[in-house]
């Protein structure tokens, strides 16, 4: 089996299973490919959870920003302004320093069969703290996208909804929301790609890689420092990221086709050249 030993030792190293010590001398290509791939688990974990949770929050934010009531609109505006106007890197640092200062408390959660103690010190760990920052960050960016789409919903659609006597929640669910999604989806695909790339920042900001459990770029830098040869680990990271980016484009493209399935012709195809600007 190709890289069998390396796979056994380091396949799940980023989660803390397998060999405890990272390879030091005689680093093989197998070690590098497997360990960096193992780190990719974290990138995917952060990206999927932050995106899924952020989706709902960002729709809520977009609707709040569109609200005529200042009490709803202003906080949403400020939230988006703060998270879009400042660098993610600084947000990570700030959040980490804030989480460290939290008092160490534990809460017991009764989940029926098992009991879980939720502790505030989890926030100072990457898996929860960084996830929270990424979630808030992507929510702000996506909220801006959805807000833009919400404002571009054709007037005729809204008038048609009025003519059918739809109001409130029903009008939103049946008319506004689907059109908003359809309009925002190409930009949202772009945001998903950006968020996935942004996950590499986690272990380079304050969040410690506890027991050297890090993400793909963390291990790549480890190898580059060890071997002093950047031409192997970084291209490996690059290939992994290009592959996952292509997967994101494929999945979001499928969703896009579904969102546009009632429309005729070419418009259903997602733009091959995604806009890179966040």
């Amino acid at each position: 089996m190709i890289c069998g030993e390396a796979l056994q030792n380091y396949g799940l190293r980023s989660l803390g299973f397998g060999e405890r010590l990272l390879p030091r001398a005689d680093i093989t290509l197998c070690d590098q490919v497997v360990l960096i791939g193992s780190g990719l688990i974290w990138n995917v974990y952060f990206a999927i959870l932050a995106l899924c949770l952020g989706f709902f929050f960002s729709v809520a934010l977009a609707v709040a920003r569109n609200s005529p009531r200042a009490l709803l609109r202003k906080p949403a505006d400020w939230f988006v302004f703060v998270f879009r106007g400042s660098p993610l890197f600084i947000q990570f640092f700030l959040a980490y320093e804030a989480f460290v200062l939290l008092p160490r408390l534990g809460f017991d959660l009764d989940l029926g069969s098992m009991e879980l103690t939720v502790e505030t010190r989890w926030l100072a760990r990457a898996w929860l703290g960084a996830l929270l920052v990424l979630f808030l960050n992507t929510s702000a960016y996506a909220a801006q996208i959805f807000y833009g789409a919400l404002q571009s919903v054709p007037k005729g659609d809204l008038e048609a909804a009025d003519a059918y006597g739809m109001t409130g929640w029903k009008r939103f669910r049946r008319v506004v929301f689907p059109t908003m999604m359809r309009l925002a989806w190409p930009a949202y695909t772009n945001e998903a790609i950006f968020l996935f790339h942004a996950t590499t920042l986690v272990f380079f900001s304050s969040f410690p890689a506890f027991q050297q459990k890090g993400d793909a770029l963390y291990y790549a830098q480890y190898f580059a420092d060890r071997t002093f040869n950047p031409f192997v680990p970084y291209p490996i990271v690059a290939i992994y990221f290009v592959l996952v980016t292509l997967c994101i484009i494929a999945v979001f493209g499928a969703v896009n086709r579904r969102l546009n399935r009632h429309l005729p012709g070419e418009r259903t195809r997602i733009r091959y050249r995604p806009n890179l600007i966040r």
Binding site: H197, A198, L217, A224, P230, Y234, V237, F241, V242, L246
Partner: peptide
């Protein structure tokens, strides 16, 4: 388009 910018930063400085 497919690769995070931080990877480039770390890469090019050494290269």
């Amino acid at each position: 388009r497919g690769i995070p910018d931080i990877a480039f930063f770390l890469f090019f400085v050494i290269v």
